[in-house]
Design a protein around this nucleic acid. Structure first.
Lengths: 64, 64
DNA sequence: CTCTAATGTCAAGTTTCCTTTACATGTCGC
DNA sequence: GCGACATGTAAAGGAAACTTGACATTAGAG
């Protein structure tokens, strides 16, 4: 999975900590997902999409 | 998370084993997800959506 | 009635997700 | 040059997702 979270977050002028708070997860979790160390759970992916007002497919893409 | 997988699977006349094979997971995993015992990972959710030709949001919904 | 396919579920084990705590680095304003 | 942020990463632990293997029940075909 590749994702556009870092770009979306910066477009909103949010720090990783800001986004983590909006998602109710730790800052390390946001950092790990942005850096592709692991994928979010499906419920967290839904929360991320809701926070950015987008669909999951607009943020995440399966790897080629 | 609630999902429509059982209905979609039956519309395609597939057994849980058939779907499991199409998804490259075990039959128990399909059964557990259909019965709401746990949510699929994000990559598996993408595969499920692809198999049914739908978007993730058309299959899964966050709980109210 | 018997055989098979389909489903539900359990136990035990591995991997992935997420936590808290902690430390290192770079940047910026003052 | 300090301090306060922002970011990256690591270790250790818990929770969730997934595996294989096994067994029980039900329903339908022959």
């Amino acid at each position: 999975m590749i994702n556009r979270i870092r770009k979306l977050r910066r477009d909103h002028d949010w720090s990783q900590g800001d986004l983590a708070e909006a998602l109710s997860v730790s800052r390390q979790t946001v950092n790990a997902i942005e850096n592709g160390r692991y994928d979010p759970s499906l419920p967290l992916a839904f929360t991320i999409a809701r926070v950015f007002g987008l669909r999951i497919e607009d943020i995440f893409q399966p790897e080629p």
